[in-house]
């Protein structure tokens, strides 16, 4: 019996009259990688924002590890086990690569409120941060300011931040967007490694079908904010809605 880690119940948000996410109910289980697909503007990022708390739901609930987190702040959700990487790179630009990751580890270990110790003397934080950087092969760039990194390396760092956070629920929003063909596999391999840790669940928003095919255990399709399909990859990919969406044809309402 696999455990449900994250669940949304009728999750809805309206912007003015526009329903961006429409009553999405879905459960995400341990050991599972769920790909979330849908055309541009379907509401994928907005669905993520509702789960991680950047925007407040108009209706519905989110439960994480059995607890209702609908009213909790972004920071509280994070501390409760939710880790989110962002579609647009979202880092601390003038701090070094190492400092970015170290900040995550420091948050994780609750040393942020230490005012009178020297940050540099917390070597355990540095060691842990370096281990993560080695995993994403950014260790040699540790002293570079993030703003000096290439786009591909910034994406890698984005993933490194999430690995450092060590959450129960990983949320990736197009992690390889804009990466070159030889950079993308590093990130995809990392996600595959995370998947092997069976006690986590991974949500992955992705447009590339080959990536989905190789990684996903399950696909959900969002269309105009609503859940349009949910099931094993082979079944969902064969469905009319995905065929039409990714063959470039007009999507019809379901």
């Amino acid at each position: 019996m696999t455990q449900t880690l994250l669940e949304t119940h009728g999750l809805t948000v309206r912007f003015g009259g526009h329903v961006a996410v429409d009553a999405v109910s879905c459960a995400f289980r341990a050991g599972e990688l769920t790909a979330i697909v849908g055309p541009n503007g379907a509401g994928k990022t907005t669905y993520f924002n509702l789960i991680s708390g950047q925007i407040a739901a108009s209706a519905g609930r989110v439960t994480l590890l059995g607890e209702d987190i609908t009213r909790k702040s972004v920071a509280e959700r994070c501390r409760h086990g939710l880790g989110r990487a962002f579609q647009l790179t979202n880092l601390f630009p003038s701090l070094s690569v190492l400092e970015n990751v170290r900040l995550v580890i420091q948050a994780q270990r609750h040393t942020g409120f230490s005012l009178l110790s020297m940050a540099a003397s917390h070597t355990e934080l540095t060691v842990a941060a370096m281990a993560v950087l080695e995993r994403v092969r950014l260790d040699r760039l540790k002293d570079q300011p993030v703003s000096a990194l290439s786009h591909g390396n910034q994406r890698k760092l984005e993933v490194a931040m999430l690995i450092a956070l060590d959450p129960k629920v990983y949320m990736f929003d197009e992690p390889t967007a804009g990466m070159s063909v030889d950079e993308a596999p590093v990130v995809l391999d990392l996600i595959a490694e995370l998947k092997a840790e069976r006690d986590r669940t991974i949500l992955l928003v992705e447009h590339k079908m080959d990536v989905i095919r190789s990684l996903a255990d399950r696909i959900i399709v969002l269309h105009n904010g609503a859940l349009a399909a949910d099931g094993p990859p082979a079944q969902v990919m064969a469905s009319d809605i995905v065929q039409e969406a990714y063959m470039g044809k007009e999507l019809t309402d379901v």
């Binding site: 972004v74 920071a75 994070c78 501390r79 989110r84 962002f86 003038s94 900040l103 948050a107």
Partner: peptide, 11 residues
């Protein structure tokens, strides 16, 4: 640098 991300990593 980025209060949005600081919040998202749990601060």
């Amino acid at each position: 640098e980025n209060e949005f991300r600081a919040e998202a990593i749990g601060y």
